[in-house]
Nucleic acid binder design. Structure first.
Lengths: 303, 303
DNA sequence: ACTCCTTACGGAGCACGTAACTATA
DNA sequence: TATAGTTACGTGCTCCGTAAGGAGT
Protein backbone atom coordinates (compact mmCIF):
# COMPACT_ATOMS: atom_id res chain seq x y z
CA UNK A 1 0.00 0.00 0.00
CA UNK A 2 1.26 3.46 -0.89
CA UNK A 3 0.21 6.88 0.28
CA UNK A 4 -0.40 7.91 -3.35
CA UNK A 5 -2.98 5.17 -3.65
CA UNK A 6 -4.79 6.46 -0.60
CA UNK A 7 -4.65 10.00 -1.93
CA UNK A 8 -6.23 8.84 -5.17
CA UNK A 9 -8.87 6.93 -3.24
CA UNK A 10 -9.86 9.96 -1.21
CA UNK A 11 -9.79 12.22 -4.25
CA UNK A 12 -12.11 9.77 -5.99
CA UNK A 13 -14.70 10.00 -3.24
CA UNK A 14 -14.45 13.78 -3.25
CA UNK A 15 -15.05 14.09 -6.96
CA UNK A 16 -18.10 11.87 -7.04
CA UNK A 17 -16.16 8.79 -8.14
CA UNK A 18 -14.83 10.51 -11.20
CA UNK A 19 -11.38 9.23 -12.12
CA UNK A 20 -10.66 12.04 -14.54
CA UNK A 21 -11.42 14.79 -12.05
CA UNK A 22 -9.59 13.01 -9.27
CA UNK A 23 -6.54 12.80 -11.48
CA UNK A 24 -6.70 16.50 -12.30
CA UNK A 25 -6.92 17.40 -8.67
CA UNK A 26 -3.82 15.34 -7.96
CA UNK A 27 -1.97 16.61 -11.04
CA UNK A 28 -1.84 13.15 -12.52
CA UNK A 29 -3.27 11.50 -15.61
CA UNK A 30 -6.35 9.30 -15.46
CA UNK A 31 -4.47 6.12 -15.98
CA UNK A 32 -2.34 6.76 -12.91
CA UNK A 33 -5.36 7.09 -10.66
CA UNK A 34 -6.95 4.13 -12.34
CA UNK A 35 -3.88 2.06 -11.61
CA UNK A 36 -3.79 3.25 -8.02
CA UNK A 37 -7.31 2.08 -7.55
CA UNK A 38 -6.86 -1.31 -9.16
CA UNK A 39 -3.60 -1.95 -7.30
CA UNK A 40 -5.27 -1.06 -4.03
CA UNK A 41 -8.31 -3.21 -4.67
CA UNK A 42 -6.05 -6.03 -5.68
CA UNK A 43 -3.86 -5.79 -2.61
CA UNK A 44 -6.82 -5.60 -0.28
CA UNK A 45 -8.78 -8.21 -2.18
CA UNK A 46 -11.85 -6.05 -1.86
CA UNK A 47 -14.09 -4.15 -4.26
CA UNK A 48 -14.12 -0.53 -3.14
CA UNK A 49 -16.42 1.02 -5.73
CA UNK A 50 -19.67 0.03 -7.33
CA UNK A 51 -19.50 0.02 -11.10
CA UNK A 52 -21.64 -0.16 -14.15
CA UNK A 53 -19.35 -1.67 -16.66
CA UNK A 54 -16.26 0.46 -16.36
CA UNK A 55 -17.85 3.48 -14.76
CA UNK A 56 -17.70 4.11 -11.08
CA UNK A 57 -21.14 4.94 -9.79
CA UNK A 58 -20.81 4.59 -6.05
CA UNK A 59 -18.77 3.34 -3.15
CA UNK A 60 -19.24 0.05 -1.35
CA UNK A 61 -19.77 -0.21 2.40
CA UNK A 62 -16.29 -1.62 2.70
CA UNK A 63 -14.98 1.20 0.56
CA UNK A 64 -16.39 3.73 2.97
CA UNK A 65 -14.56 2.13 5.83
CA UNK A 66 -11.32 2.09 3.91
CA UNK A 67 -11.75 5.74 2.93
CA UNK A 68 -12.33 6.56 6.54
CA UNK A 69 -8.99 5.10 7.58
CA UNK A 70 -7.29 6.44 4.47
CA UNK A 71 -8.34 9.94 5.51
CA UNK A 72 -6.88 9.41 8.95
CA UNK A 73 -3.69 8.05 7.51
CA UNK A 74 -3.24 11.06 5.26
CA UNK A 75 -4.21 13.46 8.02
CA UNK A 76 -1.43 12.02 10.14
CA UNK A 77 1.12 12.44 7.41
CA UNK A 78 -0.03 16.03 7.16
CA UNK A 79 0.52 16.35 10.88
CA UNK A 80 4.08 15.16 10.46
CA UNK A 81 4.70 17.69 7.71
CA UNK A 82 3.15 20.34 9.93
CA UNK A 83 5.62 19.56 12.69
CA UNK A 84 8.38 20.00 10.20
CA UNK A 85 7.10 23.37 9.05
CA UNK A 86 6.68 24.45 12.63
CA UNK A 87 10.44 24.35 12.95
CA UNK A 88 11.78 25.04 9.52
CA UNK A 89 9.38 27.81 8.54
CA UNK A 90 7.69 28.78 11.74
CA UNK A 91 6.18 32.02 10.55
CA UNK A 92 4.82 30.70 7.26
CA UNK A 93 1.62 28.82 6.68
CA UNK A 94 -2.09 29.02 6.20
CA UNK A 95 -4.78 29.33 8.82
CA UNK A 96 -8.13 28.13 7.55
CA UNK A 97 -10.85 29.32 9.87
CA UNK A 98 -14.36 28.00 9.56
CA UNK A 99 -16.99 30.20 11.06
CA UNK A 100 -20.65 31.08 11.01
CA UNK A 101 -21.83 34.33 9.67
CA UNK A 102 -22.35 37.41 11.74
CA UNK A 103 -21.45 36.41 15.26
CA UNK A 104 -17.92 35.24 14.77
CA UNK A 105 -17.35 37.86 12.11
CA UNK A 106 -17.81 40.48 14.80
CA UNK A 107 -15.10 38.99 16.94
CA UNK A 108 -12.66 37.81 14.33
CA UNK A 109 -11.44 41.20 13.10
CA UNK A 110 -9.96 42.26 16.42
CA UNK A 111 -8.56 38.81 17.11
CA UNK A 112 -7.01 38.64 13.68
CA UNK A 113 -5.54 42.09 14.14
CA UNK A 114 -3.73 40.83 17.21
CA UNK A 115 -2.83 37.63 15.43
CA UNK A 116 -1.21 39.48 12.56
CA UNK A 117 1.03 41.38 14.93
CA UNK A 118 2.73 38.12 15.89
CA UNK A 119 2.32 36.25 12.62
CA UNK A 120 2.08 38.77 9.81
CA UNK A 121 2.95 36.28 7.08
CA UNK A 122 0.40 33.61 7.83
CA UNK A 123 -2.24 33.43 5.13
CA UNK A 124 -5.65 33.56 6.78
CA UNK A 125 -8.62 32.04 5.01
CA UNK A 126 -12.11 32.45 6.34
CA UNK A 127 -14.54 29.74 5.26
CA UNK A 128 -18.07 30.80 6.00
CA UNK A 129 -20.68 28.11 6.46
CA UNK A 130 -23.40 26.81 8.72
CA UNK A 131 -22.62 25.01 11.98
CA UNK A 132 -23.43 21.54 10.71
CA UNK A 133 -21.17 21.88 7.70
CA UNK A 134 -18.47 23.37 9.89
CA UNK A 135 -18.36 20.21 11.96
CA UNK A 136 -18.02 18.21 8.78
CA UNK A 137 -15.29 20.47 7.40
CA UNK A 138 -13.33 20.34 10.62
CA UNK A 139 -13.42 16.56 10.74
CA UNK A 140 -12.48 16.32 7.07
CA UNK A 141 -9.65 18.77 7.57
CA UNK A 142 -11.07 21.21 5.07
CA UNK A 143 -10.60 23.86 7.71
CA UNK A 144 -8.14 23.94 10.59
CA UNK A 145 -10.22 25.61 13.25
CA UNK A 146 -13.93 26.29 13.57
CA UNK A 147 -15.65 28.95 15.58
CA UNK A 148 -19.35 28.93 16.16
CA UNK A 149 -22.08 29.04 18.70
CA UNK A 150 -24.79 26.63 17.75
CA UNK A 151 -23.57 23.09 17.01
CA UNK A 152 -20.26 21.32 17.68
CA UNK A 153 -20.92 21.28 21.43
CA UNK A 154 -19.39 17.85 21.72
CA UNK A 155 -19.25 16.44 18.23
CA UNK A 156 -17.29 13.20 18.28
CA UNK A 157 -13.86 13.56 16.77
CA UNK A 158 -13.56 17.22 17.66
CA UNK A 159 -11.78 18.91 20.49
CA UNK A 160 -14.00 21.75 21.62
CA UNK A 161 -13.07 24.65 23.86
CA UNK A 162 -15.35 27.26 25.31
CA UNK A 163 -14.45 30.62 23.94
CA UNK A 164 -16.67 33.32 25.35
CA UNK A 165 -20.27 33.94 26.34
CA UNK A 166 -22.54 36.55 24.95
CA UNK A 167 -26.08 37.76 25.07
CA UNK A 168 -28.32 40.25 23.33
CA UNK A 169 -29.07 43.95 23.53
CA UNK A 170 -32.05 45.90 22.45
CA UNK A 171 -31.43 48.80 20.10
CA UNK A 172 -34.00 51.46 19.40
CA UNK A 173 -33.96 54.94 17.90
CA UNK A 174 -33.48 57.92 20.25
CA UNK A 175 -36.78 58.91 21.78
CA UNK A 176 -38.49 55.58 21.25
CA UNK A 177 -40.91 54.92 24.16
CA UNK A 178 -39.33 51.55 24.96
CA UNK A 179 -36.15 53.33 26.02
CA UNK A 180 -37.90 54.56 29.16
CA UNK A 181 -39.38 51.21 30.06
CA UNK A 182 -37.66 49.72 33.13
CA UNK A 183 -37.50 46.85 33.70
CA UNK A 184 -37.96 45.48 30.23
CA UNK A 185 -40.03 42.33 29.82
CA UNK A 186 -40.52 39.86 27.01
CA UNK A 187 -44.12 40.94 26.84
CA UNK A 188 -43.08 44.54 26.31
CA UNK A 189 -40.83 43.50 23.42
CA UNK A 190 -43.85 41.92 21.75
CA UNK A 191 -45.64 45.26 21.70
CA UNK A 192 -43.36 46.63 19.00
CA UNK A 193 -42.29 45.46 15.56
CA UNK A 194 -39.05 43.49 15.96
CA UNK A 195 -35.97 43.11 13.80
CA UNK A 196 -33.48 40.36 14.47
CA UNK A 197 -31.39 37.59 12.95
CA UNK A 198 -32.43 34.99 10.43
CA UNK A 199 -33.17 31.52 11.72
CA UNK A 200 -29.99 29.53 12.18
CA UNK A 201 -27.87 32.62 12.64
CA UNK A 202 -26.50 34.04 15.83
CA UNK A 203 -28.71 32.35 18.34
CA UNK A 204 -31.94 33.15 16.52
CA UNK A 205 -33.36 29.77 17.44
CA UNK A 206 -32.90 30.28 21.17
CA UNK A 207 -34.42 33.70 20.80
CA UNK A 208 -37.49 32.28 19.12
CA UNK A 209 -37.83 29.51 21.68
CA UNK A 210 -37.63 31.92 24.58
CA UNK A 211 -40.70 33.75 23.33
CA UNK A 212 -42.50 30.55 22.37
CA UNK A 213 -42.02 28.99 25.79
CA UNK A 214 -44.19 31.73 27.28
CA UNK A 215 -46.69 31.52 24.45
CA UNK A 216 -45.63 34.94 23.21
CA UNK A 217 -45.78 35.90 19.57
CA UNK A 218 -43.26 38.64 18.78
CA UNK A 219 -44.04 40.72 15.73
CA UNK A 220 -40.91 40.06 13.72
CA UNK A 221 -41.14 42.35 10.74
CA UNK A 222 -37.68 41.73 9.35
CA UNK A 223 -34.95 39.11 9.72
CA UNK A 224 -31.41 39.72 8.58
CA UNK A 225 -28.17 37.78 8.65
CA UNK A 226 -26.15 40.83 9.48
CA UNK A 227 -26.17 43.19 12.44
CA UNK A 228 -25.53 46.21 10.27
CA UNK A 229 -28.64 45.51 8.26
CA UNK A 230 -30.65 45.28 11.45
CA UNK A 231 -29.26 48.60 12.66
CA UNK A 232 -30.05 50.25 9.38
CA UNK A 233 -33.68 49.30 9.51
CA UNK A 234 -33.94 50.26 13.15
CA UNK A 235 -32.74 53.71 12.15
CA UNK A 236 -35.31 53.79 9.38
CA UNK A 237 -37.99 53.26 11.99
CA UNK A 238 -39.10 49.79 10.88
CA UNK A 239 -38.93 48.55 14.44
CA UNK A 240 -36.70 47.83 17.41
CA UNK A 241 -33.72 45.53 17.05
CA UNK A 242 -32.30 42.66 19.04
CA UNK A 243 -28.61 42.21 18.33
CA UNK A 244 -25.48 40.76 19.82
CA UNK A 245 -24.35 42.97 22.70
CA UNK A 246 -20.83 43.25 21.39
CA UNK A 247 -22.18 44.83 18.22
CA UNK A 248 -23.03 48.14 19.89
CA UNK A 249 -19.60 48.78 21.31
CA UNK A 250 -19.06 51.46 18.72
CA UNK A 251 -22.01 53.33 20.27
CA UNK A 252 -23.97 54.77 17.48
CA UNK A 253 -25.14 58.18 18.65
CA UNK A 254 -28.60 57.92 17.15
CA UNK A 255 -29.43 54.56 18.77
CA UNK A 256 -30.02 53.65 22.37
CA UNK A 257 -29.08 50.23 23.69
CA UNK A 258 -30.38 48.21 26.62
CA UNK A 259 -28.97 44.98 27.91
CA UNK A 260 -31.30 41.99 27.55
CA UNK A 261 -29.25 39.31 29.27
CA UNK A 262 -31.86 38.91 31.99
CA UNK A 263 -34.45 37.92 29.43
CA UNK A 264 -32.61 35.53 27.14
CA UNK A 265 -30.31 32.57 27.72
CA UNK A 266 -26.58 33.12 27.49
CA UNK A 267 -24.95 31.69 24.41
CA UNK A 268 -21.52 30.13 24.39
CA UNK A 269 -19.33 30.49 21.36
CA UNK A 270 -16.85 27.67 21.00
CA UNK A 271 -13.73 26.97 19.07
CA UNK A 272 -13.10 23.45 17.80
CA UNK A 273 -10.51 21.49 15.87
CA UNK A 274 -9.97 17.92 14.81
CA UNK A 275 -8.84 15.97 17.85
CA UNK A 276 -6.23 14.12 15.81
CA UNK A 277 -4.75 17.31 14.45
CA UNK A 278 -1.32 18.60 15.30
CA UNK A 279 -1.70 22.25 16.15
CA UNK A 280 1.00 24.43 14.73
CA UNK A 281 2.39 27.10 16.99
CA UNK A 282 0.46 29.84 15.28
CA UNK A 283 -2.75 27.83 15.51
CA UNK A 284 -2.38 27.41 19.24
CA UNK A 285 -1.60 31.09 19.48
CA UNK A 286 -4.74 31.95 17.55
CA UNK A 287 -6.85 29.81 19.83
CA UNK A 288 -5.43 31.35 22.96
CA UNK A 289 -6.08 34.79 21.49
CA UNK A 290 -9.66 33.76 20.91
CA UNK A 291 -10.01 32.58 24.47
CA UNK A 292 -8.35 35.47 26.23
CA UNK A 293 -7.98 38.36 23.83
CA UNK A 294 -11.61 39.03 23.11
CA UNK A 295 -12.03 40.82 26.43
CA UNK A 296 -10.70 43.94 24.72
CA UNK A 297 -13.60 43.84 22.39
CA UNK A 298 -16.21 44.47 25.05
CA UNK A 299 -17.30 40.85 25.02
CA UNK A 300 -17.67 39.04 28.29
CA UNK A 301 -15.15 36.30 28.78
CA UNK A 302 -16.27 32.82 29.48
CA UNK A 303 -15.97 32.24 33.19
CA UNK B 1 7.24 11.28 2.71
CA UNK B 2 6.90 7.55 2.31
CA UNK B 3 5.44 4.90 4.55
CA UNK B 4 8.77 3.03 4.47
CA UNK B 5 10.47 6.02 5.98
CA UNK B 6 7.97 6.08 8.81
CA UNK B 7 8.42 2.36 9.35
CA UNK B 8 12.15 2.85 9.64
CA UNK B 9 11.64 5.73 12.01
CA UNK B 10 9.45 3.69 14.32
CA UNK B 11 11.76 0.70 14.12
CA UNK B 12 14.64 2.96 15.11
CA UNK B 13 12.89 4.07 18.28
CA UNK B 14 12.03 0.48 19.12
CA UNK B 15 15.58 -0.75 18.79
CA UNK B 16 17.11 1.93 20.95
CA UNK B 17 18.13 4.08 17.99
CA UNK B 18 20.17 1.31 16.45
CA UNK B 19 20.16 1.54 12.68
CA UNK B 20 21.55 -1.95 12.18
CA UNK B 21 18.92 -3.64 14.32
CA UNK B 22 16.14 -1.54 12.85
CA UNK B 23 17.22 -2.63 9.39
CA UNK B 24 17.25 -6.29 10.39
CA UNK B 25 13.77 -6.03 11.81
CA UNK B 26 12.54 -4.56 8.54
CA UNK B 27 14.50 -7.02 6.41
CA UNK B 28 16.57 -4.26 4.90
CA UNK B 29 20.23 -3.31 4.92
CA UNK B 30 21.56 -0.57 7.17
CA UNK B 31 22.11 1.85 4.39
CA UNK B 32 18.45 1.72 3.42
CA UNK B 33 17.30 2.70 6.89
CA UNK B 34 20.01 5.30 7.06
CA UNK B 35 18.76 6.82 3.83
CA UNK B 36 15.17 6.74 5.03
CA UNK B 37 16.13 8.70 8.07
CA UNK B 38 18.19 11.31 6.25
CA UNK B 39 15.54 11.78 3.58
CA UNK B 40 12.87 12.23 6.21
CA UNK B 41 14.92 14.67 8.23
CA UNK B 42 15.73 16.56 5.07
CA UNK B 43 12.12 16.76 3.93
CA UNK B 44 10.87 17.86 7.32
CA UNK B 45 13.81 20.16 7.89
CA UNK B 46 14.05 18.86 11.42
CA UNK B 47 16.61 16.87 13.39
CA UNK B 48 14.83 13.81 14.75
CA UNK B 49 17.63 12.10 16.63
CA UNK B 50 20.38 13.24 18.95
CA UNK B 51 23.80 12.12 17.80
CA UNK B 52 27.35 11.82 18.95
CA UNK B 53 29.23 12.06 15.73
CA UNK B 54 27.49 9.49 13.56
CA UNK B 55 25.88 7.48 16.32
CA UNK B 56 22.31 7.93 17.31
CA UNK B 57 22.08 8.23 21.06
CA UNK B 58 18.59 9.57 21.61
CA UNK B 59 15.53 11.15 20.15
CA UNK B 60 14.73 14.85 20.12
CA UNK B 61 11.51 16.29 21.51
CA UNK B 62 10.38 16.98 17.98
CA UNK B 63 11.35 13.46 17.01
CA UNK B 64 9.05 12.06 19.67
CA UNK B 65 6.15 13.99 18.26
CA UNK B 66 6.87 12.82 14.77
CA UNK B 67 7.16 9.22 15.94
CA UNK B 68 3.84 9.61 17.66
CA UNK B 69 2.11 10.57 14.44
CA UNK B 70 4.12 8.08 12.43
CA UNK B 71 2.77 5.32 14.67
CA UNK B 72 -0.77 6.49 14.08
CA UNK B 73 -0.20 6.68 10.38
CA UNK B 74 1.11 3.14 10.23
CA UNK B 75 -1.62 1.88 12.53
CA UNK B 76 -4.19 3.25 10.13
CA UNK B 77 -2.59 1.55 7.17
CA UNK B 78 -2.74 -1.65 9.19
CA UNK B 79 -6.41 -1.00 9.75
CA UNK B 80 -6.94 -0.75 6.03
CA UNK B 81 -5.15 -4.03 5.46
CA UNK B 82 -7.23 -5.57 8.22
CA UNK B 83 -10.43 -4.55 6.48
CA UNK B 84 -9.14 -6.26 3.38
CA UNK B 85 -8.36 -9.46 5.21
CA UNK B 86 -11.75 -9.37 6.85
CA UNK B 87 -13.27 -9.95 3.46
CA UNK B 88 -10.69 -11.85 1.50
CA UNK B 89 -9.60 -14.22 4.23
CA UNK B 90 -12.19 -13.88 6.92
CA UNK B 91 -11.26 -16.96 8.92
CA UNK B 92 -7.52 -16.38 8.91
CA UNK B 93 -5.54 -14.13 11.16
CA UNK B 94 -3.88 -13.68 14.50
CA UNK B 95 -5.48 -12.66 17.75
CA UNK B 96 -2.93 -11.20 20.13
CA UNK B 97 -4.41 -11.11 23.60
CA UNK B 98 -2.66 -9.23 26.35
CA UNK B 99 -3.60 -10.35 29.82
CA UNK B 100 -2.48 -10.43 33.40
CA UNK B 101 -1.48 -13.63 34.98
CA UNK B 102 -3.83 -15.87 36.89
CA UNK B 103 -7.15 -14.09 36.79
CA UNK B 104 -7.73 -13.83 33.07
CA UNK B 105 -6.00 -17.12 32.53
CA UNK B 106 -8.80 -18.78 34.44
CA UNK B 107 -11.41 -17.31 32.18
CA UNK B 108 -9.63 -17.45 28.86
CA UNK B 109 -9.61 -21.22 28.38
CA UNK B 110 -13.38 -21.58 28.25
CA UNK B 111 -13.78 -18.44 26.16
CA UNK B 112 -11.11 -19.56 23.76
CA UNK B 113 -12.74 -22.97 23.51
CA UNK B 114 -15.92 -21.30 22.32
CA UNK B 115 -13.92 -18.97 20.10
CA UNK B 116 -12.20 -21.86 18.36
CA UNK B 117 -15.54 -23.40 17.48
CA UNK B 118 -16.31 -20.43 15.27
CA UNK B 119 -12.79 -19.53 14.23
CA UNK B 120 -10.64 -22.65 14.41
CA UNK B 121 -7.90 -21.28 12.17
CA UNK B 122 -7.18 -18.02 13.95
CA UNK B 123 -3.78 -18.09 15.60
CA UNK B 124 -4.18 -17.03 19.19
CA UNK B 125 -1.23 -15.48 21.00
CA UNK B 126 -1.36 -14.78 24.69
CA UNK B 127 0.99 -12.06 25.83
CA UNK B 128 1.30 -12.13 29.58
CA UNK B 129 2.29 -8.94 31.33
CA UNK B 130 1.38 -6.53 34.10
CA UNK B 131 -1.49 -4.08 33.78
CA UNK B 132 0.67 -1.03 33.19
CA UNK B 133 2.59 -2.65 30.38
CA UNK B 134 -0.64 -3.98 28.92
CA UNK B 135 -1.93 -0.45 28.51
CA UNK B 136 1.30 0.44 26.75
CA UNK B 137 1.18 -2.61 24.51
CA UNK B 138 -2.42 -1.99 23.55
CA UNK B 139 -1.71 1.60 22.60
CA UNK B 140 1.40 0.60 20.68
CA UNK B 141 -0.51 -2.12 18.90
CA UNK B 142 1.76 -4.83 20.21
CA UNK B 143 -1.37 -6.66 21.26
CA UNK B 144 -4.86 -6.41 19.79
CA UNK B 145 -6.95 -6.79 22.90
CA UNK B 146 -6.13 -6.59 26.58
CA UNK B 147 -7.96 -8.16 29.46
CA UNK B 148 -7.20 -7.23 33.00
CA UNK B 149 -8.62 -6.07 36.26
CA UNK B 150 -6.32 -3.52 37.76
CA UNK B 151 -5.36 -0.66 35.43
CA UNK B 152 -6.76 0.54 32.11
CA UNK B 153 -9.96 1.78 33.72
CA UNK B 154 -10.00 4.78 31.45
CA UNK B 155 -6.56 5.06 29.97
CA UNK B 156 -6.61 7.71 27.26
CA UNK B 157 -6.49 6.24 23.78
CA UNK B 158 -8.15 3.00 24.79
CA UNK B 159 -11.71 1.86 24.42
CA UNK B 160 -12.58 -0.03 27.56
CA UNK B 161 -15.54 -2.30 28.18
CA UNK B 162 -16.63 -3.90 31.40
CA UNK B 163 -16.38 -7.62 31.14
CA UNK B 164 -17.41 -9.29 34.35
CA UNK B 165 -17.18 -8.89 38.10
CA UNK B 166 -15.65 -11.30 40.51
CA UNK B 167 -14.76 -11.73 44.13
CA UNK B 168 -12.88 -14.13 46.36
CA UNK B 169 -13.53 -17.40 48.11
CA UNK B 170 -11.89 -18.97 51.07
CA UNK B 171 -10.56 -22.47 50.63
CA UNK B 172 -9.55 -24.69 53.53
CA UNK B 173 -8.92 -28.42 54.01
CA UNK B 174 -11.83 -30.61 55.06
CA UNK B 175 -12.31 -30.50 58.79
CA UNK B 176 -10.51 -27.17 59.28
CA UNK B 177 -12.20 -25.29 62.18
CA UNK B 178 -12.79 -22.17 60.05
CA UNK B 179 -15.24 -24.15 57.92
CA UNK B 180 -17.75 -24.10 60.80
CA UNK B 181 -17.36 -20.39 61.48
CA UNK B 182 -20.44 -18.45 60.38
CA UNK B 183 -20.44 -15.64 59.61
CA UNK B 184 -16.83 -15.25 58.66
CA UNK B 185 -15.07 -11.99 59.55
CA UNK B 186 -11.84 -10.37 58.49
CA UNK B 187 -10.64 -10.76 62.06
CA UNK B 188 -11.27 -14.50 61.92
CA UNK B 189 -9.20 -14.76 58.75
CA UNK B 190 -6.30 -13.16 60.59
CA UNK B 191 -6.29 -15.98 63.15
CA UNK B 192 -4.88 -18.47 60.66
CA UNK B 193 -1.92 -18.56 58.34
CA UNK B 194 -3.01 -17.20 54.97
CA UNK B 195 -2.04 -18.06 51.41
CA UNK B 196 -2.96 -15.75 48.55
CA UNK B 197 -1.74 -13.97 45.45
CA UNK B 198 1.46 -12.04 44.96
CA UNK B 199 1.24 -8.26 45.07
CA UNK B 200 0.10 -6.89 41.73
CA UNK B 201 -1.70 -10.07 40.80
CA UNK B 202 -5.38 -10.75 40.83
CA UNK B 203 -6.57 -8.02 43.11
CA UNK B 204 -3.95 -8.67 45.75
CA UNK B 205 -3.60 -4.97 46.40
CA UNK B 206 -7.27 -4.47 47.19
CA UNK B 207 -7.09 -7.52 49.43
CA UNK B 208 -4.18 -6.07 51.38
CA UNK B 209 -5.84 -2.65 51.65
CA UNK B 210 -9.06 -4.15 52.98
CA UNK B 211 -7.19 -5.62 55.92
CA UNK B 212 -5.05 -2.53 56.38
CA UNK B 213 -8.02 -0.21 56.52
CA UNK B 214 -9.18 -1.94 59.70
CA UNK B 215 -5.68 -2.08 61.12
CA UNK B 216 -5.60 -5.85 60.74
CA UNK B 217 -2.42 -7.75 60.07
CA UNK B 218 -3.11 -11.03 58.30
CA UNK B 219 -0.48 -13.72 58.69
CA UNK B 220 0.40 -14.25 55.05
CA UNK B 221 2.73 -17.22 55.04
CA UNK B 222 2.90 -17.68 51.30
CA UNK B 223 2.15 -15.64 48.18
CA UNK B 224 1.83 -17.20 44.77
CA UNK B 225 1.03 -15.99 41.29
CA UNK B 226 -1.06 -19.02 40.54
CA UNK B 227 -4.25 -20.40 42.08
CA UNK B 228 -3.10 -23.98 41.70
CA UNK B 229 -0.02 -23.29 43.74
CA UNK B 230 -2.19 -21.80 46.46
CA UNK B 231 -4.48 -24.84 46.46
CA UNK B 232 -1.53 -27.19 46.67
CA UNK B 233 -0.18 -25.51 49.78
CA UNK B 234 -3.61 -25.36 51.35
CA UNK B 235 -3.83 -29.12 50.90
CA UNK B 236 -0.42 -29.49 52.46
CA UNK B 237 -1.77 -27.72 55.53
CA UNK B 238 0.35 -24.57 55.25
CA UNK B 239 -2.71 -22.43 55.80
CA UNK B 240 -6.06 -21.33 54.41
CA UNK B 241 -6.30 -19.82 50.95
CA UNK B 242 -8.03 -16.84 49.44
CA UNK B 243 -8.59 -17.33 45.74
CA UNK B 244 -10.75 -16.15 42.88
CA UNK B 245 -14.22 -17.65 43.30
CA UNK B 246 -14.29 -18.95 39.78
CA UNK B 247 -11.24 -21.07 40.57
CA UNK B 248 -13.17 -23.54 42.72
CA UNK B 249 -15.78 -24.39 40.16
CA UNK B 250 -14.14 -27.76 39.67
CA UNK B 251 -14.92 -28.49 43.33
CA UNK B 252 -11.97 -30.30 44.69
CA UNK B 253 -13.34 -32.93 47.03
CA UNK B 254 -10.71 -32.45 49.70
CA UNK B 255 -11.21 -28.67 50.00
CA UNK B 256 -14.12 -26.68 51.32
CA UNK B 257 -14.94 -23.27 49.90
CA UNK B 258 -16.76 -20.29 51.40
CA UNK B 259 -17.78 -17.16 49.58
CA UNK B 260 -16.02 -14.01 50.80
CA UNK B 261 -17.78 -11.41 48.71
CA UNK B 262 -19.25 -9.73 51.77
CA UNK B 263 -15.80 -9.03 53.12
CA UNK B 264 -13.88 -7.79 50.10
CA UNK B 265 -14.61 -5.30 47.35
CA UNK B 266 -15.85 -6.59 44.02
CA UNK B 267 -13.33 -6.42 41.24
CA UNK B 268 -14.21 -5.61 37.65
CA UNK B 269 -12.28 -7.24 34.87
CA UNK B 270 -12.23 -5.19 31.71
CA UNK B 271 -11.39 -5.68 28.11
CA UNK B 272 -9.72 -2.90 26.18
CA UNK B 273 -8.42 -2.13 22.73
CA UNK B 274 -6.90 0.79 20.91
CA UNK B 275 -9.65 3.27 20.12
CA UNK B 276 -8.24 3.88 16.66
CA UNK B 277 -8.15 0.20 15.85
CA UNK B 278 -10.36 -1.46 13.28
CA UNK B 279 -11.76 -4.57 14.89
CA UNK B 280 -11.81 -7.56 12.64
CA UNK B 281 -14.91 -9.71 12.73
CA UNK B 282 -13.28 -12.37 14.83
CA UNK B 283 -11.99 -9.77 17.27
CA UNK B 284 -15.46 -8.38 17.83
CA UNK B 285 -16.68 -11.91 18.22
CA UNK B 286 -14.05 -12.64 20.83
CA UNK B 287 -14.98 -9.55 22.79
CA UNK B 288 -18.66 -10.40 22.76
CA UNK B 289 -17.81 -13.89 23.95
CA UNK B 290 -15.85 -12.38 26.79
CA UNK B 291 -18.75 -10.20 27.76
CA UNK B 292 -21.52 -12.75 27.52
CA UNK B 293 -20.02 -16.20 27.32
CA UNK B 294 -18.23 -16.33 30.62
CA UNK B 295 -21.48 -17.04 32.45
CA UNK B 296 -20.95 -20.70 31.63
CA UNK B 297 -17.79 -20.66 33.64
CA UNK B 298 -19.50 -19.96 36.96
CA UNK B 299 -18.34 -16.34 36.93
CA UNK B 300 -20.86 -13.66 37.68
CA UNK B 301 -21.58 -11.45 34.75
CA UNK B 302 -21.14 -7.75 35.03
CA UNK B 303 -24.56 -6.29 35.69
C1' DA C 1 -20.21 10.76 -31.19
C1' DC C 2 -18.73 11.78 -26.79
C1' DT C 3 -17.27 10.71 -22.29
C1' DC C 4 -15.12 7.74 -19.24
C1' DC C 5 -12.28 4.00 -17.66
C1' DT C 6 -8.95 0.21 -18.48
C1' DT C 7 -4.97 -1.97 -20.38
C1' DA C 8 -0.53 -2.13 -22.82
C1' DC C 9 3.93 -0.35 -23.25
C1' DG C 10 8.08 2.45 -22.71
C1' DG C 11 11.12 5.58 -20.24
C1' DA C 12 12.69 7.86 -16.24
C1' DG C 13 13.41 7.94 -11.52
C1' DC C 14 14.35 5.99 -7.24
C1' DA C 15 14.76 2.59 -3.66
C1' DC C 16 17.51 -0.98 -2.19
C1' DG C 17 21.82 -3.56 -2.07
C1' DT C 18 26.94 -3.83 -2.45
C1' DA C 19 30.86 -1.80 -1.08
C1' DA C 20 34.12 1.61 0.34
C1' DC C 21 34.76 5.17 3.73
C1' DT C 22 34.51 7.49 8.37
C1' DA C 23 33.92 7.76 13.09
C1' DT C 24 33.15 6.08 17.78
C1' DA C 25 34.28 2.82 21.83
C1' DT D 1 40.31 -3.43 16.27
C1' DA D 2 35.61 -4.03 16.22
C1' DT D 3 31.33 -1.89 15.82
C1' DA D 4 28.15 1.50 13.90
C1' DG D 5 26.69 4.88 10.46
C1' DT D 6 27.25 7.58 6.17
C1' DT D 7 28.18 8.11 1.36
C1' DA D 8 28.86 6.49 -3.45
C1' DC D 9 27.30 3.90 -7.17
C1' DG D 10 24.84 0.50 -10.02
C1' DT D 11 20.77 -2.35 -11.01
C1' DG D 12 16.18 -3.54 -11.15
C1' DC D 13 11.65 -2.37 -10.03
C1' DT D 14 7.80 0.57 -10.37
C1' DC D 15 5.36 4.55 -11.18
C1' DC D 16 3.78 7.74 -14.28
C1' DG D 17 2.66 9.23 -18.98
C1' DT D 18 1.37 8.27 -23.82
C1' DA D 19 -1.63 5.91 -26.50
C1' DA D 20 -4.77 2.53 -27.96
C1' DG D 21 -8.93 -0.12 -26.84
C1' DG D 22 -13.68 -1.03 -24.71
C1' DA D 23 -17.87 0.38 -22.53
C1' DG D 24 -21.56 3.26 -21.35
C1' DT D 25 -24.77 7.37 -22.41
Amino acid sequence: MELRQLRSLVALTETGFNVTQAAERLHLVQSAVSQHLSRLEEELGVVLFERQGKRLIGITATGKQVVNYARKTLANTENILAIGRDFSEESLGTLRIGTTHAQACYVLPSVLRMFRKTYPDIIVQIHQSNPKQLVEMTINNTVDISICTEALADAPGLKTLNCYRWNRSLIAPQGHPINDLHPLTLEALCEYPLISYLSGFTGANHLRKTFARLGLKPKVVLSAADTDVIKTYVREGFGIGIVVSSANSSMDADLEAQDLSRLFPWETTRVAYNQDKYLRHYESHFISLLQTGVANNGISLFT
